[in-house]
């Protein structure tokens, strides 16, 4: 659906393809709406249908969106894996979308190719939500991360936020860092040299005047860090198994590391985790990774109702 820029804060009918498409105020509007949805259960999306097109499987995202839609009274149709869709017969993405738009009110798209959601949105009059396009964007993940930070720290500004692990390939980290540049925070970027954040992102941070520190050493993080965002370090990123073992353990977070860092940090992770976060932290009051999962549903409720133009009554 083409962007309607006439009313900056009207999100009805808009697509959610990339966090880049939204202003700071619009991002905050999503979060505010989500907050209102914390305990809101009326079926305001009753009679509405979400067309859910997963050209690659992603069980968690799929379940989270379906839960949000169904809890608001809406229903879901679609496929969870492209093996069963007609694209395996060579139908183009644009054609698939033009067919499916007749069955639903909003389209959710997951696709292994970067830019697929943007392309889909240009082929339909319906709002399109990007549920992940390759390594590019997954905007509701970014929104739920922002939401969780604001929920746990009561602010989106003036925070010390550390990102730890694979900063080179992590889509989650890239999007969140870019989005945080709308707000005034101090960032710590901790990764092995081989998994440093790509220079293009640093260039953007420099252009935005974001304060950041890059280091390999976990304990270079300030003692009074507010948020620790840990990501998976995947073995396939390392040609050498020994190197992987070293790195894996250097960035593992357990109770001791939390204590060393002041014992107050909010601990986030996009899940699934391998062993980046020790299980003994699951009852640590700052552990927020399961809250992220719950917040995912809340944020998606807000996204669905805002884009569908259905307001709470």
């Amino acid at each position: 659906m083409p962007v309607n820029a006439s009313d900056a804060l009207s999100l009805a009918g808009r697509d959610l393809i990339s966090v880049r498409d939204f202003t700071r105020d619009e991002l905050i509007a999503f979060l505010d709406e989500a907050e209102a949805f914390e305990y809101y259960t009326s079926p305001i999306l009753s009679g509405m249908v979400m067309g859910s097109l997963f050209f690659e499987p992603s069980t968690r995202t799929n379940l989270s969106f379906s839960s949000a839609m169904q809890r608001l009274g809406g229903s879901v149709l679609g496929f969870a894996d492209s093996k069963v869709s007609s694209t395996s017969k060579g139908e183009s993405l644009a054609d698939t979308v033009r067919v499916v738009e007749n069955y639903c009110d909003i389209i959710l798209l997951r696709h292994p190719f970067e830019g697929a959601a943007r392309l889909a949105s240009e082929s339909t009059r319906l709002p399109v939500i990007n549920a992940g396009d390759g390594t590019n964007q997954h905007p509701t993940q970014t929104l739920l991360d922002l939401y969780t930070i604001r929920q746990k720290r009561n602010a989106l500004e003036g925070l010390k936020i550390a990102f730890i692990g694979d900063l080179k390939y992590s889509r989650t980290v890239h999007s969140l860092i870019e989005t945080l540049s709308h707000f005034d925070n101090e960032l710590f970027l901790i990764s092995p040299t081989s998994l440093r954040i790509p220079p293009d992102f640093l260039e953007e941070l420099n252009a935005n005047g974001t304060v950041y520190h890059e280091d390999e050493d976990f304990f270079s993080i300030a003692q009074d860090v507010d948020v620790l965002y840990s990501t998976r370090i995947q073995q396939e990123r390392f040609p050498d198994a020994v190197e992987y073992e070293k790195v894996k353990n250097a960035y593992r977070i357990d109770r001791e590391t939390i204590e060393k860092l002041g014992g107050k940090a909010t601990l986030m992770h996009p899940l699934p985790r391998l062993n980046e976060i020790s299980m003994d932290l699951d009852d640590y009051p700052g552990a927020a990774y399961f809250d992220q999962v719950r917040n995912g549903v809340t944020v998606r409720k807000a996204v669905l109702s805002l884009l569908l133009g259905k307001t709470r009554v």
């Binding site: 190719f113 970067e114 830019g115 943007r118 396009d133 590019n136 293009d200 260039e203």
Partner: peptide, 11 residues
């Protein structure tokens, strides 16, 4: 010079 792909957003 920096361009960004409108689709994949790569710089």
């Amino acid at each position: 010079l920096r361009l960004r792909c409108h689709y994949c957003e790569r710089t």
